[in-house]
Nucleic acid binder design. Structure first.
Length: 347
DNA sequence: ACCCAGGGTTGGC
DNA sequence: GCCAACCCTGGG
């Protein structure tokens, strides 16, 4: 039972933010409910309070269908948790949860100033209405974001989201909360960098063991069983680098250009994926992930329909939008999807 | 069975 | 710097 609660007063459309297909993480568990004939959207997931000994907390966010100016949060601990066994206070826990939620949903970002900026550009102005309340959905786990972004390359949103969920369910730590009032009470974390070192990537590796039992065990450790295909090798090699060479946290302290160079060293990480990791994983607002769609949109809006390269698209975005580059990318992508502009550009 | 596309990356010239 | 080849899976 969720008895602890917090309230947030910020402009945000939770549903839109959760469902906008951002690459940082799979959407949280969704269910809707009714309260005096008003519909409520509820999203839940587990977050780890890393400043409080990685204490796992089940978070549930609730927002009325038509209220984009506030949402409620309630949370719960694992059944065997006893606060008096720890040295933490409720106040500390509340603060830490609040900080993480502010970070994940980028609540410190001034949306209204951004909307003013968009409105002053007639090409961007229409996106405000389509995307009202859309915010960045920043990863709560940077490593997950890196793997998830590698998985997204040359893949479809539906497929890579499914793969990531499967990775979590297969190797992630399981958290089982009490079932009272909650439809879903089982959640999974994301496997650690260390876990990835033991994964197989090649199906031939399974047959090195003649024992049938081992074969099954090995299959369970084969990344490809999660449908990631050839990206398995990238994931494994990248996690080796993240263990031995590149410090995940350190990248966050770098200047954007240095961070871009560093994260690009990972196999399977090209310019587009690097920018996704930096934007959705680290919150580098000046990153401008340039994929085929953004390329087409920018070409159409700012280059008279003459298709420019992805590299040039990125340079244009960084240059033209500055610190709003990441948000501009998010809004343009979503606007193009929703408005039918994408279908038009495809032809 | 075949063909194609998916919010790209890699390695070749 | 450009372009083809390419790695897989799921849907038509």
């Amino acid at each position: 039972m969720m008895h602890n609660s917090l309230k947030f007063n910020s402009l945000i459309n939770l549903k839109l933010t959760q469902e906008s297909g951002q690459t940082s993480q799979s959407p949280w568990y969704y269910e809707d409910s009714l309260k005096s004939e008003s519909r409520i959207h509820n999203y839940s997931d587990v977050i780890l309070l890393n400043k409080l000994g990685n204490l796992p907390v089940l978070i549930k966010l609730s927002q009325y269908e038509n209220d984009f100016n506030s949402f409620d949060l309630s949370y719960d601990f694992l059944p065997n948790f006893d606060l008096s066994d720890t040295c933490f206070s409720f106040k500390e826990i509340n603060n830490e949860i609040k900080n993480q939620i502010i970070n994940i949903f980028n609540l410190d970002f001034d949306l209204n100033s951004f909307y003013k900026f968009l409105s002053e550009d007639e090409k961007l102005a229409p996106s405000v209405e389509f995307c009202n309340g859309l915010r960045l959905f920043i990863a709560k786990n940077k490593f997950e974001c890196i793997i998830s972004s590698i998985c997204s390359a040359n893949n479809s949103i539906a497929r890579w989201t499914k793969s990531i969920s499967k990775i979590r369910e297969t190797w992630g730590k399981e958290y089982i909360f009490s079932k009272e009032n909650e439809i879903n009470n089982i959640f999974y974390g994301f496997p650690k960098v260390n876990d990835f070192q033991n994964f197989y990537i090649d199906s031939n590796e399974e047959y090195e063991n003649h024992d049938k039992k081992h074969k099954i065990d090995n299959y369970k450790r084969n990344l490809k069983s999660c449908g990631v295909g050839y990206r398995a090798e990238y994931m494994k090699k990248s996690s080796q680098l993240l263990l031995n060479k590149i410090d995940i946290e350190e990248v966050g302290n770098m200047e954007y250009s240095e961070a871009f160079k560093t994260i690009s060293e990972l196999p399977g990480v090209g310019p587009k994926v690097a920018d996704c990791i930096l934007l959705y994983g680290y919150g580098f607002m000046e990153a401008f992930p340039s994929d085929v769609w953004i390329k087409r949109i920018i070409s159409s809006l700012y280059f008279g329909g003459n298709e420019i390269s992805a590299k040039k698209t990125r340079e244009f975005g960084i240059d033209y939008f500055g610190d709003y580059a990441g948000y501009a990318q998010l809004y343009l992508f979503h606007f193009a999807r929703k408005s039918g502009l994408m279908d038009k550009l495809k032809k």
